[in-house]
Amino acid sequence: MVMVKRKIRVLIGKPGLDGHDRGAKTVASVLRDHGMEVIYSGLHKTPSEIAEAAAQEDVDVVGLSILSGAHMSLFPRVREELAQRGKQEVLLVGGGIIPAEDVDALEKDGYARLFGPGTNTDEIANWITSEMQIRFESEGDEE
C-alpha cells in the first residue's frame, strides 16, 4: 500500500434508478480496508444529491457506479453539478457496464478512470492512492 499524508476521503455514489449495488458496496468496503474514509450515497440518487453530498463531506474522490446504461446522461451531469459547487478538482472515477467508446468519451469529459467488470479491487484502491499521493504532494508544494 502506498502511504499518503492524510486519509483520503471518498464518496461512492449510485446515480439514477439502477439498483445494482454489489459492485459499489464491495468497492466501498475495499477502499475502507485500504484506510480511506468512505461515504456511500445509498441508492437512487440524483446527480445534484450526489454532488451536494460530495461538497458537504468535502471528499477528495467521487466514484460512481451505473449498470443501467444511463451513464452517458448521468456521469456528465454529476461532473457539472460538482463544478457548480466548486468541486471541479475532485478525482472522478466510475465503474459499471460501460462500452469502450463511452469510456473514451467519459475520460475526455473529466473522468480520470473507468473500471470495468472483472477489475481487481485492490488495483482500484492502489490506483486511487497513488493518484491522491501526487495531488497531496502538489498541494504541499503550494503551501
Partner: peptide, 22 residues
C-alpha cells in the same frame, strides 16, 4: 426500464437517461 420499475413516468426528473435502457 428502471423508471417503470420504480413507478416514475418517462418524463419525471428521476428518469433522466434511463428511459427504455434496460
Amino acid at each position: 426500464d428502471f423508471p417503470t420499475l420504480m413507478g416514475y413516468d418517462s418524463d419525471d426528473e428521476h428518469s433522466l437517461g434511463e428511459v427504455g435502457q434496460v
